[in-house]
Design a protein around this nucleic acid. Sequence first.
RNA 1: GGCCCGUUGGUCAAGCGGUCAAGACGUGGCCCUCUCACGGCUAAAACGGGGGUUCGAUUCCCCCACGGGUCACCA
Length: 482
Amino acid sequence: MNKTVRTRFAPSPTGYMHIGNLRTALYEYLIAKSNGGSFILRIEDTDRERFVEGATDVIYKTLEMSGITHDEGPDIGGDYGPYVQSERKNDYIEYAKQLIEKGEAYYCFCTKERLESLGSEINGESVTHYDRHCLGLSAEEIEENLKNGVPFVIRQKIKEGTTTFHDEVYGDITVDNAEMEDQILIKADGYPTYNFANVIDDHLMNITHVVRGSEYLSSTPKYNLLYEAFGWEVPTYVHLPAVMKDQHQKLSKRNGDASFQDLVEKGYLPKAIINYIALLGWSPSVNQEIFTMEELIRAFDVKGLSKSPAIFDIVKLTWMNGEYIKMMPFDEFYDMALPYLKKSVHSDIDLKMLAGFIQTRIGTFNDIAEMVDFVDTLPEYPVELYTHKKMKTDPEIAASSLKLTIPFLKGTDKWTNEELYADLVELAKANGMKNGQILWPIRTALSGKPTSPCGATELCILLGKNETVARLEKGLALIENN
RNA sequence: GGCCCGUUGGUCAAGCGGUCAAGACGUGGCCCUCUCACGGCUAAAACGGGGGUUCGAUUCCCCCACGGGUCACCA
């Protein structure tokens, strides 16, 4: 029989959500959902020093925007609450005492000074483990110390031998227990250490799959020993390789700026971000890159998880974002693009038409501004812009071409794209010119840029007859004054 | 430093003893084309090094190098 799969995302409300964190949450969600299980949100707020006001809201909002919906959590409740760690603190000491009774843990009254005298350096050379000084204390001595209120911690007694655990990604890993020291379970202030609280909470919440970053691989044997000491079933471990900024550095707020929020502000779609990070460290059994959340749930399998770190590539994310933009129904795209368009364009033009031109041309919504900046005011541009090898034009040809097109455009009333295009092509033919020799000067004079989101005739329609004629005459003047 | 983990093109990655070593992004070229983009086609580009095992190693084993992680009364 199979237990219902339960995974949990347990972030600390200490700031913004990194892409790496979000990916962990995504995989936890996918593991649960692809097995018909539940995804639980638990806030680990015991670190008061790093607590940031409003950070929990960022977590809720990010998960919601990402389509990663939790089945239980502080905001919606559930059968295993409370879901905020600071509200669960009462029980931990009792569990630690259980271990003491079982002979799996013991009181330690050593002072900080004594521990330091042991010479246990952290980043230096020698790293010494606790010498188990208090393990040999007699029952009377312990009783006496407790009665006198001597500060104490509770340490786990690590047994001899080796510990082997299985990880779904990294396989079986065996570690010599001598590598571990008698870790502290309960601190002098009565609070549990992070590792201890995690084991208790996960067990109490019936978490079946512990999914977390590979930086926890080294401490997993300690977790295992704790489960064994309690006689509890060891959960399934799934450790995830890191998401890197480059070969050497992990993605972080300090080094990079790739938080979910930042990316959204830069014009990336949550769906594209999720799709991209799903593929950062995981690959499906089918050769497919664009996935909806539903498709991800169906396709997800821990077998596809990678062991090695992946470098976050904003260029590929941008490509994927562009794919999502192109896939959007036009009306939806228009709604989303409108605020950006209104910010850059104040002229009375058909924004809907403009939006139609840019949908296939942007990677993110923030690309819009630069793309339409010529609409309100014609930029200053050099005469050299009239030279285009493939269009077979140069300023001289452009001048004679414009002398033909300006009066024509002034006089025509067939102001639709199809008619204009047909008429201008005919005009070119009648004067022995190539299409490009007629059209390139127009496109250039109207946009003032080497590239534009639409062609010459489309620019005419967009800008309207008056503006079109004015810009063409300006262009002609520019050439003639040089 | 001890221990643990990792190493396929610039990047994401498939591969799970025999392949011309997929695919995608990016890059170059071509086609389409009223510029650019989209779309289509195409090219260049990789198994860290050394030993084994084997008829045969990218794939299995060992060593080395490099990279990462971890060794707290922090989470």
